[in-house]
Amino acid sequence: MNNFSYVKVGSVSEARALREGNDHARYLAGGTNLIDLMKYKLESAGTLIDIHHIDENRTISSTEQGGLWLGAFVSNADTAYHPLVEQRYPLLSRAILAGASPQIRNMATNGGNLLQRTRCYYFYDASSPCNKREPGSGCPAIQGYNRNMAILGTSRHCIAVFPSDMCVALAALDATVVTQGPYGERRIPFHDFHRLPGETPEIDNNLQIGEIIVGIELPPEGFPEYHSYLKLRDRNSFAFALVSVATGLTLDNGVIAVARIALGGVAHKPWRIAEAEQFLVGKEPTREAFAGAADIILAGAVGYGFNTFKIELAKRAIIRNGMMALNPASQRPGAQPSLEP
């Protein structure tokens, strides 16, 4: 780690002003990702602008439109355990609590969670090539150990996965990311926030340089009645998802009125396919119906060897989580699979 200056700021405008024109400055929120990256010499900073203590918009509160505002600097833990989130958006609460560990969730912020970087093994090893870290150097994952890599939306330059759990729920909930940037406030629909690797795997999302996330807005529909988050991973806690699914449903007379299905652990962004959700509308929520939706979602899936099992696993997870959503009480801590059929 190099020497850097550290500045604690009290407002968004102060933070922005310090960042302006200073290419070597980074925002520091909870630091649970950024500090690690600096220790692994994947990131370096001349100035760390500590935004963790900014009080502006640091709330979780109802919006005029009937939705919910999640301040960017609020911790993941405070968000997950907030009564409004627990009651109205339990899917989000469960997804957050399926991630990391209590200690990390206490430090991690909502803004930082959106910007955490991939957990690709080769990305983390500064002595191996990686297009995301060093554009043009190559992607050793494609023919290497790719068990935790993507099966959807990959490119020949990168097959990395965006590792967040929280964002899978935010995608399913149709959240909007609210930012302050060089051109003032922006409202970015969640599906436009993260990017696919394409030709530029070094760019994870559509945030502009220096732009700061101030909050996340949720629309009124939170699927409090029928929802489930299922996370499949190599141990029951404190491991990133190999496949995760966030499902939210509303039912009308026993048939599906609204369906949301977002996948985590399978792509460079939370994965949603509108066509599959449309397919479910008007159908009874059965294993067959969810299987049909799964086939649509996974239509273009490609395996790279070690991760090929994820295609079948994702299908089964979509089906199972659809059924789990009908009985949220069947869900267990850590987003483990239900114990009832």
């Binding site: 957990r119 090893d125 050793p140 190599d234 141990r235 491991a239 801590p333």
Partner: peptide
């Protein structure tokens, strides 16, 4: 410990990716 024999090295040398049981296991 997962090797990548193309490089002759291990790819998961940290406790986030070298999985040992947690309480929930």
């Amino acid at each position: 410990t997962i090797p990548d024999h193309r490089y002759g090295k291990y790819v998961n040398p940290n406790l986030a990716e070298y999985h040992i049981p947690v309480h929930a296991d």
